[in-house]
């Protein structure tokens, strides 16, 4: 299982890639593996305000429904429009083509609350 060093992570198993005042958000390799075959993805509309720690979308596998939480607060700048038609990409490429949304950050200090790859792996080990 991979956890890119340059990403940041949440306790709810989202990853964050920072690009200036934009962040790209998706779910981790651990999360997609735990869910199993992803068959449905619900994303917010562009322009939606999201709040750190609040659900912004839903990922469903055959067996389970799972909320996806905003790692930081801000405005949804872009969504991965390919995902609703090809939700399985979250399984095959969780850190690449399986990205979910881009958020324009409203409070950059929130990024400091997130975990790095080492801390996230320790978090998984502790939780499971």
């Amino acid at each position: 299982m991979e956890f890119p060093e340059e990403f940041k992570y949440t306790e709810e198993h989202e990853w964050v890639q920072v690009e200036g005042d934009l962040v790209i958000v998706g779910i981790t390799d651990f999360a997609q593996d735990a869910l199993g075959d992803v068959v449905f993805v619900e994303l917010p509309e562009v322009g939606t305000e999201v709040t750190a720690g609040k659900a912004f979308g839903v990922v469903e596998s055959v067996k389970a429904v799972s909320d996806v939480y905003a790692p930081v607060s801000g405005t949804v700048e872009e969504i991965n429009e390919e995902l609703p038609d090809a939700p399985e990409v979250i399984n095959t490429s969780p850190y690449g083509d399986g990205w979910m949304i881009k958020i324009r950050i409203s409070d950059p200090t929130e990024l400091e609350e997130l975990m790095d790859a080492t801390e996230y792996q320790a978090h998984i080990a502790e939780e499971h």
């Binding site: 199993g36 075959d37 068959v39 596998s61 055959v62 067996k63």
Partner: peptide, 20 residues
């Protein structure tokens, strides 16, 4: 297999993946 509780039993819910 991923094992889960089912009706008091520990059973495999999937091996390769549900869809496959």
């Amino acid at each position: 297999a991923r094992m889960v509780p089912f009706g008091g039993w520990e059973m495999p819910v999937q091996y390769a993946g549900v869809i496959e």
